[in-house]
Simulated assay, not measured.
Amino acid sequence: MVPETLLPDSGRRVFVALGDSFTEGVGDRDERLPNGVRGWADRVAEKLAKAQPGWRYANLAIRSKRLRHVIGEQLEPALTMRPTLVTLYAGGNDILDLKTDMAVLMDDYEKLVAQLTDTGATLVLFTGFDVKVSALLEPLKKRNTFYNQKVRAIAAKYGAVLVDYWCLDAFHDRRMWDSDRLHMSKAGHKYLAGQVLDQLGVPHKIRLKDWEPPAKLSLREWEQHQRRWIHDWVLPLFGRKLRGVTLGDQLTPRWPEPVKVPPKGGLKKLAAKYPAGSAWR
């Protein structure tokens, strides 16, 4: 049964998504949409509109953003939109920064959650997944565990809906991840959208792909994959860090203002109305 507080018979229905690449939709490529991606949040917005037409949707998330950027750049615009549903995932990029003080980070995270809670909107929070990218990142597992423990506690304290991403076993399949191994693939984004909708009580028909077991790589194939990953993703990442730039520096939010989501045709139908090069792209 769909919760009455989420999908009321009348009144405002505004969904605002906040965060970084996780929420922007990186890994789920679609050149017909802003920033060339789709993602789980777009899919959730479309299912909301199908369940009850009239939902408006804004996605302020931009790849590479740290928690301080979400607070400084996304919070105020979100508050002015008077949201009735907010999703927040932030802090993952901070965990990768070894100088981050995790206690301070989570204090700031809780303050952000408190402000969003004060809007009266339904708030959805996420734990982080233990992505098996490389043995070099295993020391970060303790930081990720600390983050997840705090998110769970904060969600309980403020009455937020929790999507416990850490516990979703489906993501142990490498096909749920994009070639950079850090962002979900199209299949991963689609599955996560279903998990969010389940938590919100919104009907949908999203199901986990019925895959055959993944083929085991030979040593030569594994080495080829490693070399390609290092060349295509690791070296460029370190290069950007040395230059002090990120992939999100030149991007704007995909849906900066709440747009009414068409119940039929979804956001792709809406995007087709805008010429290439429009400001929202």
Rank of each mutant, 00 (worst) to 15 (best):
M1S: 13
V2R: 02
L6C: 06
L7E: 06
L7F: 06
P8Q: 01
D9K: 11
G11Q: 00
R12D: 05
R12P: 08
R12E: 09
F15C: 03
V16P: 04
A17W: 02
G19V: 00
F22W: 09
T23E: 07
E24M: 11
D30Y: 08
E31Q: 12
N35Q: 09
N35E: 05
G36L: 04
V37W: 05
R38G: 01
R38M: 08
D42E: 10
R43N: 05
A45K: 07
K47P: 00
K50F: 00
Q52C: 10
N59H: 02
S64W: 01
K65T: 09
H69C: 05
G72E: 15
L75C: 08
M81Q: 06
R82A: 15
T84H: 02
L85A: 01
V86N: 03
T87I: 01
A90F: 00
G91L: 06
G92I: 01
N93Q: 07
D94W: 00
D94T: 03
D97Q: 07
L98A: 07
L98T: 08
M106S: 04
Y109E: 12
Y109S: 12
E110M: 05
K111R: 15
L112C: 07
V113T: 03
V113L: 11
V113K: 03
Q115W: 02
Q115M: 09
L116I: 03
L116T: 02
T119M: 13
G120V: 09
A121Y: 11
T127V: 02
G128Q: 12
V131P: 01
E138C: 01
L140Q: 08
K141Q: 13
R143M: 09
A153F: 02
A156N: 13
A160K: 02
V161K: 03
V163K: 05
V163S: 04
Y165I: 06
L168N: 03
A170M: 04
F171G: 09
R174Y: 13
R175P: 12
R175C: 14
R175H: 11
R175N: 14
M176S: 11
W177T: 09
S179N: 10
L182F: 08
L182A: 07
K190C: 06
K190P: 00
L192F: 11
Q195R: 15
V196K: 05
D198M: 04
V202Q: 03
V202E: 07
R207Q: 15
D210G: 03
E212C: 07
E212D: 14
P214V: 10
P214K: 10
L217Y: 11
R220V: 06
Q226Y: 14
I230V: 15
D232S: 12
L235Q: 11
R240F: 04
K241H: 12
L242K: 14
G244D: 10
Q250H: 15
Q250F: 08
T252S: 15
V261Q: 08
V261L: 07
P262L: 10
P262R: 12
P263W: 03
K268G: 14
A272Y: 01
Y274D: 00
P275E: 15
P275C: 08
G277F: 08
